[in-house]
Nucleic acid binder design. Structure first.
Lengths: 340, 340
DNA sequence: GTGAAAGCGCTAACAC
DNA sequence: GTGTTAGCGCTTTCAC
């Protein structure tokens, strides 16, 4: 009882074969006779033997582990993505080694070192912006990287995102069609490409229709800070009649302030639109109009891209932007000619 | 550019020392002269060398990886716990290898095999019930296990939970003091100890006051199923005037149905109480009365217990039940003599 | 304090 | 097809 892990040598002895025969039985695509295989399998079963994947990885150079670097799980989009990523990778024989990084503190270098120490075959960075220098370190270590829900200028990096620019534009179009004139925007953390792209698309959509932003505050993608942004924007006479909030998580905070602190009616006094379509957005308490991020597709593309880069070192970096639909719910006024 | 990972031999050559000298520089508590250490560190820095922890683990027998088996992240309590667990373990030099398991399908055996293949030093099972047979397998492999937010009869397993029985009782007391007479319960998945303990405490609290359950339905810890449970329980003349829902996640579903489908007032027509105190419970849209699970303490105890069991093979299994306070908010009627 | 040598558990050449 | 051998990158005796 306890501790004594079984090795291939013990199995070999018991089966009356060589140690390498045992190895072959457990190695994909090695040639063994059925007879030997049976003997070995029987002995392995009896002893409870399973190959040590760490020892194997030392030789093959593949650990079958994927590092996942993630900054915060507060926004429900990320746990959902993590679950899907983990499941998808598990189905491909990979497993996820999690590293929590704090975007703000400069501990990303240290965390990256730790990741590389574990000889991961690839790296997914979710909700994390990566500097060119860090990217170069991964490159040097031969570890492919895919950014998930973040984009970066560096051409050598693969990235999978929603089409945030198109999403922002859709929201602008929708709010204008609904007859809004004083349209506000509550921004996320300025270091995030999602923030920048959503705002850029939104502004260009407004501009194309001859409108411009009526008010702007920032909520840093945090619930409390989004509440304060909403207070600053709405606790006065002249306030917006519509607001696009850079993600759902903050949109909930904004709705809470508008309805429960300021006594405003949504969408009677003000329309609110978010971005992500997390499950909570569909619950009747919020019933939030939002742009859907197609998490399943994003995950599938991320895994596909990463595995391609692992298998062919010279595979081209891919940048995928997945378009998501605007999901119209009760938090926003509808255009007159709206049909559905 | 690409792939060529640096080994200790290369560093040794460059520093003009033996390979074992290099090893000693990077090994905790090995004796090296400052002079050698400096030479080696310099060479390592120049080449970008870092020890391969997988190769190290082959010798030391410690991978410094902790397997985390988790069934679902839908309930926000779990992502929050995962983030805290990962951070706490990271601070101790360990990292989390994630395995998603489906409680229902019988794939837990397969998943456990995969975990053990990676030579994890310990195993945390969150939101997962483990059979005695599986526990025995871990025991045999010498891998300590701690159950997180689950309990089990098996004496050899460590487990960290809230004091769910006491929590359930607190809720019963509170609802009775508030003058409720028709008190319902919406259960979680029956296979979970959290479900059983919360219900047991709740029932015994009612019983001690001469009350009994007025209605009972099950929601399986799922949002949609909890909605249906609420419909079954409340869409009729004779309905409860209070309901305890086995966790917050389901309580939100129940509140949504009561308010938006059935037009009931909370707490005017019915009081709702949950369990967990996830962040959303404090948001004004729900403002849910609930028993707090002290996630930080649970995580700290889990890590402490696990590391103790890793360091001393013969450490006793520990069972920790952490008491959490009832957080009274607006979803429930208050007792007349309530002061705060 | 330091280098030489053994070996962790395994895979992959290599002969037969 | 099978056993023998080398060696993945590292830690840890063991002499000196």
């Amino acid at each position: 009882m306890g501790g004594a892990r079984v090795t291939s040598i013990q199995v070999a002895k018991r089966a009356g074969v060589s140690q390498s025969a045992v190895s072959r039985v457990f190695t994909q695509g090695a040639s063994v006779s059925k007879k030997t295989a049976d003997k070995v399998k029987k002995a392995a079963e009896e002893l409870g033997y399973r190959p040590n994947v760490l020892a194997r990885s030392l030789i093959t150079g593949k650990s079958h582990m994927i590092g996942l670097m993630v900054a915060y799980l507060e926004n429900y989009f990320y746990p959902e993505a993590l679950e899907k990523l983990s499941n998808a990778l598990q189905a491909e024989g990979y497993h996820v080694l999690v590293f929590m990084a704090e975007q703000t503190t400069g501990n990303m270098d240290k965390v990256l070192d730790e990741i590389l120490d574990y000889q991961v075959d690839g790296l997914i960075m979710a909700s994390v912006a990566i500097s060119s220098e860090l990217a170069a370190r991964c490159q040097a270590a031969g570890v492919p990287v895919v950014l998930f829900n973040r984009n970066q200028d560096d051409e050598r990096l693969s990235a999978v995102t929603s089409d945030n620019v198109a999403g922002g534009r859709k929201i602008a179009d929708f709010l204008i069609r609904a007859g809004h004139h004083r349209i506000g925007y509550i921004a996320g953390w300025e270091g995030a490409s999602t923030q920048r792209d959503r705002e850029a698309g939104f502004r260009s959509g407004l501009q194309d229709a001859g409108h411009e932003l009526y008010a702007r505050e920032t909520g840093e993608f945090q619930y409390e800070q989004a509440q304060e942004a909403a207070r600053r924007m709405f606790d006065k006479k002249e306030r917006p009649d519509a607001v696009f909030v850079a993600n759902d998580h903050m949109a909930f905070a904004v709705m809470d302030v508008l309805r429960f602190e300021l006594g405003l009616d949504i969408p009677g006094d003000v329309s609110v639109v978010g971005f992500d379509d997390v499950p909570l957005a569909a619950w009747p308490a919020y019933d939030l109009t939002t742009v859907r991020q197609r998490a399943n597709q994003m995950v599938a593309e991320t895994v596909r891209t990463l595995l391609a880069n692992i298998e062919h070192r010279d595979a081209e970096p891919r940048r995928v932007a997945i378009e998501g639909p605007l999901i119209v719910r009760g938090s926003s006024r509808k255009p007159k000619d709206w049909s559905e």
